[in-house]
Design a protein around this nucleic acid. Sequence first.
DNA 1: GCAGGCGCCTACCAACCGGTAGATACGTGC
DNA 2: GCACGTATCTACCGGTTGGTAGGCGCCTGC
Lengths: 197, 197
Amino acid sequence: MGSTPTRERILDAALDLFGARGVDAVSLDDIASVVGVRKQSLLYWFASKAELVNAVLDRAAFELVAVMDAAIRASGPDPLDRIDSIVCAVFRPVVRRPTLLGLIREVGRLDPHHVRHLAERLAPHITDARSYLEQQMACGSLRMGDPGLIAAMVYATVTGIGTDRQLLDTVGWVPDAAGLRQLRDQLRAFLRAALAP
Amino acid sequence: MGSTPTRERILDAALDLFGARGVDAVSLDDIASVVGVRKQSLLYWFASKAELVNAVLDRAAFELVAVMDAAIRASGPDPLDRIDSIVCAVFRPVVRRPTLLGLIREVGRLDPHHVRHLAERLAPHITDARSYLEQQMACGSLRMGDPGLIAAMVYATVTGIGTDRQLLDTVGWVPDAAGLRQLRDQLRAFLRAALAP
DNA sequence: GCAGGCGCCTACCAACCGGTAGATACGTGC
DNA sequence: GCACGTATCTACCGGTTGGTAGGCGCCTGC
């Protein structure tokens, strides 16, 4: 069928399904039928469902971190502008693929083993972000506060907006081009106001 | 066993389990074993799992709305103070029972039928909140912006912080008494800054 | 030209899922 | 005492789950 290797197509399909419906609600058969193979072919590439979950989680986190790193390197020195450009950079893949964040948000439900695995993967980036915020607060470029909790709240806001499409529906938002632009700009303004000194 | 009627104990246990692990990942046997009865006794009180889900969702939404309504009635006229007191009021039950918000957040994953049911239940409160925000923006008491999206972002922030305990762990937060106070105050400051004109 | 590995398959299995059928224990009114 | 409604139980069913055992075709190296 597709020229992309089976293993990659499995990871793609699993990311979408896990993110949309939750890991436990998705069976190996579901994933296999999307990919176009039999369940046993999944178990050929991944020894168990748990291993597949880990691989999907790993890739999702890697993609997100890569996008954010690129945005950081491309942005100027001002922390508000930097956060702004991170949000814009993350916004595109998240909107195009709402399941990406949905999966990561589901981590809390999974085995502690998966959680630990992902936490180790992201730990250095988190400490980096925290010390960066701390430093910018100290020199007056950001509102004072606990850098860890501030980061968590920004993350919670972006993740919630990016994943809870149902939430946006209930407040009358429509996902056309204009709506997307409006959502992105409102999100930027919200975070800018929340973080400004 | 307990003096509380079986039906209530079922709803309690189901709320905790659904919120913690997700609806699909929790079996009727899981709930029954927590309650201390057999699965068939659940099906005596609720005709099906779907009906149980609906009842749990209904009660969770009702509890939250009641808490928020009480906070609104007890607060002064200034919108920032009002939102402040809502956050404080919601904070207590959410922290004591993180599964409460977790369940509501899971709605997006459930059947459209459940979603519609809950949306109808909450619709009047949402429109109320939106028109209130609109009015306060018009008279300069709140930062200008799309009231629906602003409300959604506040909700996303609070919900994310209230449910993703894993997220708070990774930024080094500890859930003792001092940590709770700190978290609540940081959240209040964050939202106040984000909404102030 | 054939041995061997690779990718995927069919055919199963034990465990578990939500749900049904029917029996049992326990009041309560008549 | 006995019929009736309530609340719970045991026993079971069809379907689905994650996972195993083993075979089939195809390419490649020798």
